[in-house]
Every structure is written in structure tokens, then in C-alpha cells.
Amino acid sequence: MRSERHVFLTVMTAAMLVFSLTPLVLVSVFSVNASRFYAFPITGLTLQWYSDLLSDDRIWSSLLSSVLIAVGVSAISTCMGTAFAFVVVRGTGRFWRTASVLGFIPLAVPVLVLAAALQVAFVEIGLPLGYGTVIIGHTIFATPFVVLMVVAQLFRYDWRLDAAARDLGASAVETFRHVTLPILMPSIRSGAILGFLLSFNEWAIAFFTGRGFNTLPMLVYSMQRNGLPPSVLAYSSLIVIFVLAAVLLLLPFVLRMLVRGAAQETT
């Protein structure tokens, strides 16, 4: 399939990478710039902002809160979202088709309003605000995204595979575990990552439905009020580099898993 005509595609992909990475490369450049301000010229090199970052306990404790919440949200919304994706694709009849559409409505609600509405709901139901309520709130926010991620692949799913497995004597559960799930794994995995990232970066719901702790976005937004401190730039470059390094170097088996997943899909 390779031919000289793929020059266009290669160039576009390279351009996309430049587009994606330039802002972050710049962030890491400014994170070692002596000037506190996010603009040229580069006035000198310093590691001051990194040492500020390491000594700022608040960033680390809020990072922990954010990660805890995001992991919970990712797990719950992936399970619920994957299940619901089957309803969207396989549900027949007016009832299920209507229900499928209704399941996506949270997407159309501005997050800020969703946050305030969620808080009112929690208070009226009598749920005390805390980690639990933020996880519920983020799950409401993130699940439709996960559903869409899985639906995109499920629409093209060849249901004859299920029928074949059943013909060969597999139970419904076995068929799901050994046939359907492995084939859907790439999109479920993407859904889980998406759920994690959406929760990890979300401010409004965390602010309104949490209590007694700050997530990372809450801390960063409040810091931005007085001028984004360079330590936040340092954090941003550090976490991106750290995650990439962790995945690429320390955990080569993740890559192998990804590769194997990719190979499976193409069969």
C-alpha cells in the first residue's frame, strides 16, 4: 500500500505532531526561563521553578486528589459506558432508540451548569459532598464520551462472530468474554483513557460538588488569578515527560500490549 502518494498523508501527520507538541515544547522552554512571564525573550536558564514545584506540597496533594478521582471515574464510566454502548447499537424498538438518545443529553449541557445542578441534586438527596460526589458528578459528565468512543467501533462489529461462537457451544457470557470484549478492547481502552483525562482536567464539577480538598485544576485556576506561576509550567512539562518516559522506557510491556492489541484488530 505504500506509494509516493502517501507523501501528503505523511506531511499531514508530521504537521499534526508539530501542532500538538509546539505549545508543550514552548511550555517546557519557558519552564526553565529566568523570567516569570510567558513570553520571549528567553532571559536566562534557571531550575528555580522546578525547585518551587518540588517544595510546593499543595501541588502534590491536589495531584493525588485528582488522580484518585480520575481513576474512579475512569473505572465506573468505562463499565457503564461500554454497557450502554450495546444498548445504543443493539437496542431495537422506539423505546430503546429514544433511551439511547436521552443517554447522550448530558453532552449538550454546559459543564458549569451541570456542576451547579449536580450540587443541588446531591444536597436535596442528602448526599454529603466529598470525593464520592465528585466521582458521581464526573461520571455523569464523562460517560457519554466513553459511550461514543465504544459506539464508534461497535457499529462496525460483525455480529456473525457472536452467532458463530454460540453455534460452537459457547454460553452468552463466554461469548462476550472471549469474542466480543477482546475485539472491542481498543475502543474500551481509549474510552477509559478519555474518561480519566476528562475527569483529571475538569474544574467546575470538582469545585461545586467537592468539599474540603482541592483538585489540581482548582489549585491551578486559583493560582492563575495572581498570574500563573512558572512552577505550573514546570509541572506541566514534568508530567508530560514523566508519563511518556514511564510508558516508553520503564514499561515496555505496555507498548507490547498496545502493539498486540493493534495486531489483533487488523486480523
Binding site: 448526599l127 459532598l129 466529598g130 464520592g132
Partner: peptide, 12 residues
């Protein structure tokens, strides 16, 4: 939900 929620958010 209330019963369950009360239980696992008690700390907060």
C-alpha cells in the same frame, strides 16, 4: 443511593 452514599462519604 443515599444509604450507600452516606456510608462511603462518611469521612468527609
Amino acid at each position: 443511593v443515599t444509604a450507600v452514599g452516606r456510608h462511603w462519604t462518611r469521612g468527609a
